[in-house]
Structure formats: structure tokens, C-alpha cells
Amino acid sequence: MSALGDFALDDLADDGPRPTTYSQYLGLLAVAAAIVAVAPATAISLPVVVTGGVVLAAGGLRGSRAWLTRGYALMVAGGLLHGALGGSAVGTVGAVIAATIAWDVVENGIGLAEQLGTEASARRSVIVHAVAVTAVGGVAGGAAIFVSFVFANNQPLPALVLLLFATVLVTASIRQG
């Protein structure tokens, strides 16, 4: 059996309970935001983000984390493509943050449905969670955009290399806790 066939079987096994309706609504809202963020571009990025959004929504409906993650990866790819093809930096960052929020609220919704069942109401914590995740993304993305505007224009290569080094350091320190 082909690798693709194996994946398809795994996905069936991965199906879980459907997340609560609030999680689904918030997820769709975030997907829409991501699409709006890359909408000005006429390039290939828009269809990629839209496709990712559809896959992500389908994952949400099936309660499948595998499809959810695939949709999220597609949306991020679309967002990065948008930036790489010369789209606005704000649009790129906005699309990635929105995709992350969409993935997070739907994943959280699936987790809630697993632990509490689909009947239980968890509206408040779903909204609180979505607001917190939006705030983290907003602060991180906003700070990045602010810094890029202040120190704008043609970063020299050494700066890029330093940035790369710093990223590796920070990420490594984070992973080790």
C-alpha cells in the first residue's frame, strides 16, 4: 500500500468528537481573517490559504487533528508565500497569526469535546482562551512589525545571520526550559 494510502487509514482512526459550535465559529472567523490578510495579493498565495482554510475547517468538522494540522500548515505556507512573492509584511504576519488562532481554537475545541463531551457548555473558557491566544499573537506580531518599521530598509546580510543565530539560541533555550 502506498504511503498516501496509509495516511488515509490513519486519518480515519484519528476522527474524534466534533468541537463545540463556539470553537468552530471562532475558528471560521480566524480563517476568514487569514484570507482577508492575504486577499490583496493576486498571486498563488490566496488559493493556498483558502485551500488550507477549507482543510482546517473539514478537520474541525470531523474532529480530526491530523487534517486540522494539515490545513494549518497549508495556511502558513500560503501566508509565507504571500510574503516571499512580495506581499505586505503586515499581511504575511496577520495571515500566520490568524491561521495559528484558527488552529488553536479548533484544537482546543476538540480537546474540550473529548474531555467534556459535545453536550457540555464551555462557552466562557473557549472565548477566554481565544482572546488570550489572539493577545499573544498580537503582541508578538505587533512588536515585530513595529521594530521592522522603526529600523526599516535594507538590512545587511550580517544582521540576517545574527538574527538566525539569535533565533536558534532562543529556540534552543526554550526547548530546554
Partner: peptide, 15 residues
């Protein structure tokens, strides 16, 4: 391009 580089900050921010 600057856009994708700024995404690094988003990833690190969440992590």
C-alpha cells in the same frame, strides 16, 4: 523579504 522573517517573531512569541 521582510514578511516571512517577521513570522519568526510570531513563532518565538507563542513558544
Amino acid at each position: 523579504t521582510p514578511g516571512p522573517l517577521l513570522v519568526v517573531a510570531v513563532g518565538i512569541g507563542y513558544a
